[in-house]
């Protein structure tokens, strides 16, 4: 299986590569359009700030490539947020795959949310073998409101979408590569189950 991790200069991508290694999969960190197009699975990571990440995608033409990919694509954290419409962070126009805006937490709780939170209302092959109320590791100040494409929820002052699915596109707000064995299970599910 050829797995491409999209490289556009965003944060800690090595952790995803290592997590895949622990599962017995090799992957390629790449910004090359042809390599990404021909991969069996594509992982779209993202750590950092939305507008500068989007600018980096545009400068390499990846912004037009990603929405047109046909194989299963998994956006992680900011990667998932950039697959949505407008992001309040830096008033950034995203890729528009999921037709929902990303907004900032307006809560008395600490922002960013940092740490392990529970996920529930799990409804996708992505979560095969994962129990309701499992803990996942999250770091974020912006969130996706509940939406038709939601396949899991979490609570932080309100219930929000912690995972999305539409056609061949998947997104998770949490970091599966940093969420212990259960997170690794979700990555494996994406590689093995999510081939529709």
């Amino acid at each position: 299986m050829k797995i491409a991790i999209i490289d556009y200069g965003a944060g800690n991508v090595k952790s995803i590569e290592f997590a895949l290694n622990r599962l017995g999969f090799e992957s390629q960190l790449t910004s090359d359009v042809e390599t990404i197009k021909s991969a069996d699975r594509v992982i779209f990571p993202g750590v950092g700030e939305a507008s500068s990440a989007m600018a980096m995608l545009k400068s390499t033409g990846l912004d037009t490539l990603i929405p047109n990919l046909k194989q299963p694509v998994l956006g992680i954290c900011l990667g998932m947020q950039l697959m949505c419409d407008n992001c309040e962070e830096g008033d950034t126009q995203g890729l528009g795959i999921f037709e929902v805006d990303v907004v900032k937490f307006k809560t008395n709780l600490k922002v960013p949310q940092v740490g392990w939170n529970t996920i529930y209302k799990l409804q996708s092959d992505l979560f095969q073998g994962i129990l309701e109320q499992s803990h996942m590791y999250l770091v974020h100040s912006y969130y996706v409101p509940l939406h038709d494409n939601s396949i899991a929820s979490s609570d932080y002052g309100l219930e929000y979408s912690v995972a999305l699915h539409k056609n061949n596109f998947y997104g998770v707000q949490f970091h599966p590569e940093k969420s212990g064995k259960l997170g690794e299970q979700i990555l494996e599910n994406f590689l093995v189950n999510c081939n529709k």
């Binding site: 090595k14 952790s15 212990g180």
Partner: peptide, 8 residues
């Protein structure tokens, strides 16, 4: 460490 550890 990153190679072997699956938490932050």
């Amino acid at each position: 460490i990153a190679r072997h550890i699956n938490i932050p």
